[in-house]
Amino acid sequence: MGKIIIGRREKISFPSFGPDLIWAKIDTGAYTSTLHAEDVRVEMENDKEVLKFVPFKSSDKTYTGKTQKAENFRKKIVKNSFGDDEERFLITIRVMIAGEVFDTEFTLSNRSKMRNSILLGRQTIRGKYLIDVERVNLSKSYRKNQAIR
Protein backbone atom coordinates (compact mmCIF):
# COMPACT_ATOMS: atom_id res chain seq x y z
CA MET A 1 0.00 0.00 0.00
CA GLY A 2 1.27 3.50 -0.85
CA LYS A 3 1.60 6.45 1.45
CA ILE A 4 -1.54 8.28 2.52
CA ILE A 5 -1.83 11.96 1.64
CA ILE A 6 -2.67 14.20 4.59
CA GLY A 7 -2.98 17.97 4.91
CA ARG A 8 -1.08 20.52 6.96
CA ARG A 9 -3.63 20.03 9.77
CA GLU A 10 -5.47 16.78 10.47
CA LYS A 11 -7.95 15.43 12.96
CA ILE A 12 -6.49 12.55 14.95
CA SER A 13 -7.69 10.38 17.84
CA PHE A 14 -6.14 8.96 21.00
CA PRO A 15 -7.88 5.59 21.55
CA SER A 16 -6.33 5.02 24.98
CA PHE A 17 -7.66 8.17 26.62
CA GLY A 18 -9.65 10.14 24.08
CA PRO A 19 -10.62 12.51 22.79
CA ASP A 20 -11.92 11.51 19.42
CA LEU A 21 -10.87 13.70 16.49
CA ILE A 22 -8.81 16.63 17.72
CA TRP A 23 -6.84 18.91 15.41
CA ALA A 24 -3.11 18.32 15.03
CA LYS A 25 -0.62 20.47 13.15
CA ILE A 26 1.74 18.58 10.85
CA ASP A 27 5.30 19.91 11.26
CA THR A 28 8.00 18.36 9.09
CA GLY A 29 10.54 20.66 10.76
CA ALA A 30 10.01 18.99 14.12
CA TYR A 31 11.54 15.57 14.73
CA THR A 32 9.38 14.55 17.70
CA SER A 33 5.63 14.98 18.12
CA THR A 34 4.41 17.14 20.99
CA LEU A 35 1.25 17.08 23.09
CA HIS A 36 0.08 19.99 25.23
CA ALA A 37 -0.06 18.94 28.87
CA GLU A 38 -0.71 20.70 32.14
CA ASP A 39 -0.18 19.69 35.77
CA VAL A 40 2.69 17.39 34.72
CA ARG A 41 4.15 15.58 37.71
CA VAL A 42 5.84 12.36 38.78
CA GLU A 43 4.17 10.49 41.64
CA MET A 44 4.81 7.20 43.37
CA GLU A 45 2.22 4.45 42.87
CA ASN A 46 2.81 0.94 44.20
CA ASP A 47 6.51 1.76 44.74
CA LYS A 48 6.91 2.85 41.11
CA GLU A 49 7.26 6.30 39.56
CA VAL A 50 4.28 7.26 37.40
CA LEU A 51 4.01 10.34 35.20
CA LYS A 52 0.66 12.12 35.55
CA PHE A 53 -0.62 14.92 33.34
CA VAL A 54 -3.76 16.60 32.02
CA PRO A 55 -3.65 16.55 28.20
CA PHE A 56 -5.00 19.17 25.81
CA LYS A 57 -5.94 22.78 26.33
CA SER A 58 -9.09 23.72 28.20
CA SER A 59 -10.12 25.68 25.11
CA ASP A 60 -10.21 22.46 23.01
CA LYS A 61 -13.77 21.34 22.32
CA THR A 62 -12.98 17.79 23.41
CA TYR A 63 -11.14 18.77 26.63
CA THR A 64 -12.13 16.59 29.60
CA GLY A 65 -9.73 17.75 32.33
CA LYS A 66 -9.06 14.11 33.24
CA THR A 67 -5.62 13.24 34.54
CA GLN A 68 -3.83 10.59 32.48
CA LYS A 69 -0.82 8.59 33.48
CA ALA A 70 2.14 6.92 31.85
CA GLU A 71 4.19 4.26 33.58
CA ASN A 72 6.88 4.21 30.91
CA PHE A 73 8.45 7.61 30.41
CA ARG A 74 11.78 9.32 30.20
CA LYS A 75 13.19 12.81 29.83
CA LYS A 76 14.53 14.13 26.54
CA ILE A 77 16.30 17.33 25.54
CA VAL A 78 14.56 18.96 22.54
CA LYS A 79 14.96 22.29 20.78
CA ASN A 80 11.86 24.40 21.32
CA SER A 81 10.32 26.73 18.73
CA PHE A 82 12.83 29.44 19.76
CA GLY A 83 15.82 27.14 19.15
CA ASP A 84 16.58 26.74 22.85
CA ASP A 85 17.26 23.37 24.51
CA GLU A 86 14.40 22.27 26.75
CA GLU A 87 13.99 19.15 28.88
CA ARG A 88 10.64 17.41 28.39
CA PHE A 89 9.00 14.18 29.38
CA LEU A 90 8.68 11.67 26.52
CA ILE A 91 5.90 9.06 26.47
CA THR A 92 4.47 6.59 23.97
CA ILE A 93 0.80 7.00 23.06
CA ARG A 94 -1.51 5.07 20.74
CA VAL A 95 -2.93 7.32 18.01
CA MET A 96 -5.28 6.94 15.07
CA ILE A 97 -4.41 8.96 11.98
CA ALA A 98 -6.30 8.46 8.70
CA GLY A 99 -7.78 5.19 9.96
CA GLU A 100 -4.38 3.75 10.95
CA VAL A 101 -3.74 2.95 14.61
CA PHE A 102 -0.19 2.82 15.94
CA ASP A 103 1.99 3.78 18.90
CA THR A 104 4.21 6.84 18.62
CA GLU A 105 6.28 9.05 20.91
CA PHE A 106 5.19 12.46 22.17
CA THR A 107 6.97 14.97 24.33
CA LEU A 108 4.78 16.83 26.82
CA SER A 109 4.95 20.62 26.63
CA ASN A 110 2.98 23.74 27.39
CA ARG A 111 1.48 24.73 24.02
CA SER A 112 -1.09 27.13 25.52
CA LYS A 113 0.10 29.97 23.27
CA MET A 114 -0.03 27.78 20.17
CA ARG A 115 -3.12 27.23 18.02
CA ASN A 116 -3.02 23.43 18.26
CA SER A 117 -2.56 21.21 21.30
CA ILE A 118 -0.84 18.62 19.13
CA LEU A 119 2.11 18.85 16.80
CA LEU A 120 2.99 15.79 14.68
CA GLY A 121 6.69 15.61 13.83
CA ARG A 122 8.73 13.66 11.28
CA GLN A 123 9.20 10.61 13.49
CA THR A 124 5.43 10.01 13.56
CA ILE A 125 4.67 10.68 9.90
CA ARG A 126 7.82 9.22 8.29
CA GLY A 127 7.17 6.34 5.92
CA LYS A 128 3.37 6.55 6.31
CA TYR A 129 2.20 9.89 4.96
CA LEU A 130 2.79 12.55 2.31
CA ILE A 131 1.77 16.11 3.18
CA ASP A 132 -0.25 18.41 0.91
CA VAL A 133 0.46 21.79 2.52
CA GLU A 134 -2.39 23.48 0.66
CA ARG A 135 -5.11 21.35 2.25
CA VAL A 136 -6.43 20.29 5.67
CA ASN A 137 -8.34 17.28 7.00
CA LEU A 138 -7.59 14.99 4.05
CA SER A 139 -7.60 11.98 6.38
CA LYS A 140 -11.39 12.33 6.73
CA SER A 141 -11.98 9.97 3.80
CA TYR A 142 -9.70 7.31 5.33
CA ARG A 143 -11.48 7.46 8.70
CA LYS A 144 -14.86 6.43 7.33
CA ASN A 145 -15.82 2.93 8.41
CA GLN A 146 -12.54 2.46 10.30
CA ALA A 147 -12.80 0.84 13.71
CA ILE A 148 -10.14 1.40 16.33
CA ARG A 149 -8.18 -1.80 16.68
Score class of each variant (00 low, 15 high):
R143L: 11
F73H: 04
D85T: 09
E100F: 00
Y63A: 08
E134G: 10
S58P: 13
M96T: 02
I91E: 01
S141V: 13
K69H: 08
I77G: 05
E86H: 10
L119N: 14
F53S: 04
D103Y: 07
Y142S: 06
Q146L: 11
L119S: 13
F17D: 04
S81D: 00
K79Y: 15
G99N: 06
L108V: 01
T28G: 12
I5Y: 05
L108D: 02
D103F: 11
G121I: 07
T67H: 02
L130I: 13
S58M: 14
G29R: 14
V133K: 10
N72I: 12
I118D: 02
T34V: 15
Q68L: 14
G83F: 05
R126E: 15
I97Q: 00
A24C: 04
G2P: 12
E38K: 15
R126A: 11
Y63S: 00
A147Y: 02
V50Q: 07
G7M: 03
E105K: 14
H36P: 04
L90H: 01
K25D: 04
Q68T: 02
E105C: 05
A147I: 09
K25C: 09
K79T: 06
E86D: 12
F56H: 07
I148Y: 05
R41A: 14
M44A: 11
E38G: 00
K48C: 12
G127P: 07
A70D: 09
T107I: 10
G65K: 13
F102N: 08
F14R: 02
R88N: 02
Q123P: 02
Q123R: 15
G7S: 11
K75Q: 15
K3L: 14
W23Y: 00
E45S: 08
R143G: 05
E43W: 04
D103M: 09
R115V: 07
R94Y: 00
E10Q: 00
P19A: 03
Y129F: 15
V42F: 00
K57N: 10
I148K: 09
A70R: 01
V78C: 03
H36D: 09
N116S: 10
F89Y: 15
M44F: 08
I4D: 03
K66V: 11
S16A: 15
F17W: 11
E43V: 15
E134W: 05
V95C: 07
F17E: 00
S81V: 02
F56V: 01
F82C: 05
A37N: 07
R122V: 08
A70G: 11
V133W: 14
S58L: 12
